[in-house]
């Protein structure tokens, strides 16, 4: 297959990679070492691989790497670190919203996209925003609480 050299801008870093057209953004990101982007189904059912693509939350398994060329890509690890966590990451940690943690990076990306466009969402708006992110551990209660808490923290 034809390989093309493309530029991927991830968490403020620029990567030059040569990829065939059928490589998904998910696989490209993981191969670059962004393993916080989780693979759960590779067909858009689970949301574990969600990233921000020019500010929009997308399932990176449903985007081809070529399509992301030049876009601003933010993964969960681009939002904060253990030393300087993002308020959403902090809120998820404090409410028990991360049990096994595998859905968490994608869930936080969906929360970030929601709070960016709607800083004070209702519970129903939160449910809607994370409806594409499956979690098998929590029953979503502590995740919803975390997003409410993050909303309050960020509003201060």
């Amino acid at each position: 297959m034809q390989v093309k050299a493309i530029t991927l801008k991830v968490n403020g870093r620029t990567h030059y990679v040569a990829l065939p057209p059928n490589v998904t953004l998910l696989r490209a990101l993981r191969d670059l070492g962004y393993t916080d982007v989780k693979s759960g189904c590779e067909k858009g059912d689970c949301g574990a691989c969600a990233v921000l693509l020019d500010g929009q939350a997308v399932n990176s398994c449903l985007v081809l790497a070529w399509q992301a060329e030049g876009a601003e890509i933010i993964t969960n690890s681009g939002l904060g670190t253990m030393e300087h966590p993002h308020p959403i990451q902090e809120a998820f940690a404090d409410t028990g919203a991360a049990q096994c943690g595998y859905c968490t990076p994608g869930m936080i990306i969906s929360a970030k996209a929601l709070l960016d466009r709607n800083p004070h969402p209702t519970v129903d708006e939160i449910r809607e925003a994370i409806a594409g992110n499956l979690c098998r551990c929590t029953g979503y209660g502590q995740i919803i609480e975390a997003i409410q808490r993050a909303s309050a923290m960020m509003g201060q």
């Binding site: 393993t35 690890s77 670190t81 253990m82 998820f92 595998y102």
Partner: peptide, 16 residues
């Protein structure tokens, strides 16, 4: 309390 494994998970630092 915040679980000892929580922040590693929420910041994506934990390696699976």
């Amino acid at each position: 309390l915040r679980r000892v494994d929580a922040l590693g998970k929420t910041t994506g630092a934990l390696v699976y």
